[in-house]
């Protein structure tokens, strides 16, 4: 797992990466990065992760350094 900054995010998105917001669903509803999908940490398991494409990079984020 790599730690990345904002410019890396934009570069990886250009390469087809998937953005995953791991905050609770109500916080995701209020605001999230464009085209991010919601996978709250508490619900993250093999079943919910099936929404993700394993062949493409996955970028996870929350609010800040939490």
């Amino acid at each position: 797992m790599d730690l990345i900054d904002r410019s890396d995010v934009q570069r990886l998105l250009d390469l087809g990466a998937q953005l995953v917001d791991v905050l609770p669903a109500d916080e995701y509803a209020e605001d999230h990065l464009p085209e991010a999908i919601s996978l709250p940490l508490k619900q993250l398991d093999a079943e919910t992760a099936r929404r993700l494409d394993r062949e493409r990079p996955v970028i996870v984020y929350c609010h800040d350094y939490q």
Binding site: M1, D2, L3, I4, D5, R6, D8, V9, L12, A17, V20, D21, V22, L23, D31, H32, L33, L39, L41, L44, D45, A46, A49, L52, R54, R56, P57, V58, I59, V60, Y61, C62, H63, D64, Y65, Q66
Partner: peptide, 23 residues
């Protein structure tokens, strides 16, 4: 979350640590 995805078997996982606030 990144660690959890790695345990599930995802190999290309990146953590945007500064997150939504930074964006």
């Amino acid at each position: 979350a990144a660690a959890r995805l790695a345990t599930i078997g995802f190999e290309q996982v990146y953590d945007y640590t500064a997150g939504k606030a930074d964006w």
